[in-house]
Amino acid sequence: MTDAVEVYLDRLFDLLSGTGARGRRALLEAQAHLEEAVERGLDAGQSREDAEHGSIARFGTPEAIARAHASAGALPFTAAVGRIFAAGWLMTGVAGVAVGLMGLVDMVLARTVGPNFVTDDPVDVIYTAERCRQLGVVNGDAATCRAASIAHHVDELATRPLALGALALVLLALFVAARRTTALRAFTQLPSAAMISTAGVVGFGGVGLLLLAYGALGIALGERVEVGAHLAEGLAGVAAGLVFLPQAWRQLRNA
């Protein structure tokens, strides 16, 4: 090979960069094709320069070939929509389980550290007799009523997320079952593992770390009220991010 084919392949390599195995294969096939075309030209009595230029001209410009590869690799519209749907299904399921985990952590913190660590009422709240009755306190003083109110909030913070987490587990189980069903394949094909796992780590893990930092800052500043809720949210986010971390790490290392 002389310069013309080398220059052509270098240009094609630049244009195909970032396309991974597909691009590498395209480059190898282009090289083999051009080498064979040049050899045929030489066998037919052409000079090497003419054979190379003729082969390149017939092959197409690097820009046209790179565009053809890009458009051939593009997903049809319906398939792309299906993958977004599948990604949304998976991510919603994981987010729901994380919310359930948050409820569980809230419950554990309320029982071990104390309900006020998780949630509290504003200091100036007035507990009317009606409100106290709603909270199940009859003939109790304000302190009793306040404790009942906080216990009620803790219950809300724990039971509702736990219920949502249970629903999310069902959603994920349905997703796994749907992925094994050929007829539903269009709705369960996920985008690339690298994309999903990176989005999971960055999205869930990033938000989780921020909330953990927020909770830790509260503790550092001496706050002992409602800090637990932020810690629970943060822990749930980090846990969801960790689910995606091994896959994201493998994908990034092998990219």
């Binding site: 597909r22 395209a26 017939r58 197409g60 410009t61 046209a64 070939i65 053809a68």
Partner: peptide, 12 residues
Amino acid sequence: FPEGTVYPALQA
């Protein structure tokens, strides 16, 4: 047609 366009078509 440009010979190089055969390859993306084959891959598709």
